[in-house]
């Protein structure tokens, strides 16, 4: 599996290149937006792009859209907290991870995102349909890895970690409203978050 990792910190790049190679990934590095464009344009097919949101030269959002248009999923590295307005954007990243993180957190996320991107599974729950392989909600709006996990967790009847899921719950509700669907994720006292329809 081939991963393109782009960050402005060269020590981080060299460390994670070695670490991911230990995990049997083929890793190409880039330390600015120009190098990312060159890497994406040279015909190499990448399975994943790990992209720093603060990468210099070219805005990360433009690079993200370029990669996603080429069916390359993107994990975005953050030096700040994830914002709800990014998640409701037309092109959110497939997943976000904020510094500082442990190696197993990133490798676990890489595994999840790549596995989903290669999946043919269609997730359906309470009128909400997700094409997991394309990270698409009802064929129209893009969703993130965490949002897909939330729907899966709710479908399985398990509890959600509210603090971690917070911004994603609100962005999902926003997307459900945008699509005109009656389902919403609501907090039920003593039961936690549940998917409910508007007439409940």
């Amino acid at each position: 599996m081939k991963i393109l990792i782009a960050d402005e910190d060269r020590d981080f790049l060299s460390t994670y290149q070695r670490l991911l190679q230990v995990h049997s990934y083929e890793v190409v590095t880039a330390f600015d937006g120009t190098q990312v464009i060159q890497a994406l344009g040279n015909g190499t097919k990448y399975d994943l792009l790990i992209l720093s949101r603060s990468l210099p030269r070219i805005p990360a959002q433009a690079l993200l859209e370029t990669a996603q248009d080429r069916q390359i999923p993107v994990v975005m590295l953050l030096r700040e907290r994830v914002r709800s307005d990014w998640l409701t954007d037309s092109h959110p990243a497939n997943a976000y991870i904020g510094f500082p993180f442990f190696p197993d957190e990133l490798t676990g996320l890489i595994g999840e995102v790549v596995e989903k991107s290669q999946s043919q599974e269609q997730l359906e729950y309470d009128g909400v349909q997700i094409d997991i392989g394309r990270f698409l909600l009802c064929g129209k709006l893009r969703v993130t890895n965490e949002e897909i996990n939330i729907i899966r967790t709710l479908k399985d009847g398990q509890s959600l970690s509210a603090k971690r899921a917070e911004p994603y719950i609100h962005s999902l509700n926003h997307k459900l409203e945008q699509l005109g669907l009656p389902a919403r994720i609501r907090y039920m006292i003593r039961k936690g978050y549940r998917m409910v329809t508007s007439d409940e």
């Binding site: 914002r83 709800s84 307005d85 990014w86 409701t88 509210a162 911004p167 609100h170 962005s171 509700n173 926003h174 409203e177 609501r186 907090y187 039920m188 006292i189 003593r190 936690g192 978050y193």
Partner: peptide, 18 residues
């Protein structure tokens, strides 16, 4: 701020429950 529509009732119930 990152502004979106927030269900304050759910937030409060979630925090108090925890």
């Amino acid at each position: 701020q990152s502004v979106t529509k927030v269900n304050l009732s759910d937030l409060m119930n979630s925090v108090l429950d925890s």
